[in-house]
Amino acid sequence: MWQWLYKLGSPRWFYELGERSLPWLWGATVFLLAVGVVWGLAFAPPDYQMGDNYRIIYMHVPSAGLMKGCFYMMAICSAAVLIWKIKMADIVAKAIAPIGVMATLLMLASGSLWGIPTWGTWWIWDARLTSSLLQFFIYMGIIVLRSAFDSQDSAARACAVLTLVGVVNIPIIEYSVEWWNTLHQGASSLGMRDASANPPEIWIPAFFTGFGFIGLFFIGLILRSQNEILLRERRTQWVRDLVAKETAGA
């Protein structure tokens, strides 16, 4: 376990692991998303109150999950940057930020579109929505902050500090529906114990899109990290060899 973590800290090892995993990730992700989207849109039964509008949740719930998951991962990487000064952790944190921003946008937009016919409004300043919007600004703040530094090391430390400050908002989003009496409903339970909860016909497509989103996240993470590794390690022999090999035919 520790040896594996140690290896993961090596940019070259990370790059090569990404290279080996990408074909599998692509296959699994495209399969999961295709099944989940088609099933969710066409084969899951309509909700007895919301009709077909509820099909939006197959995008809303996974994107909300990514918004949280991305930030937790960035926070773990940030801790690794500050405590152990691991270069690779900063590369990964930088790679995750734009994915988190786009997931947050999809989550906000899908929630708004769902809200128009269901709540009669696309936006309301309730605790869940407001804290989620704040999270979007925190993500943007981290990206802008990084671009404000010339020195890579200062940028890494500043972004790590801001990420660790920003992570306090994630549990606030998580528990906002329990702490405050808000318009946004709490999480629905899956129909295993409780008869009023969602039956499998409804949640199985969400299972597919959920894991598909996770796969897509890892594809984006690997692709962006690999690019950053090539740039930062450009002076090393292995990157020179790789560039020479990839451009040999041209």
């Binding site: 009709g51 509008n53 099909r55 786009m102 899908s110 897509l216 984006g220």
Partner: peptide, 23 residues
């Protein structure tokens, strides 16, 4: 989409954009 087309389809178009902007 049971008269919800203007809400459901834009979400799935945004998802396609999310996919494209990620990769």
């Amino acid at each position: 989409m049971g008269d919800y087309a203007i809400y459901v389809w834009p979400v799935y178009i945004l998802f396609a954009l999310f996919f494209v902007t990620t990769v």
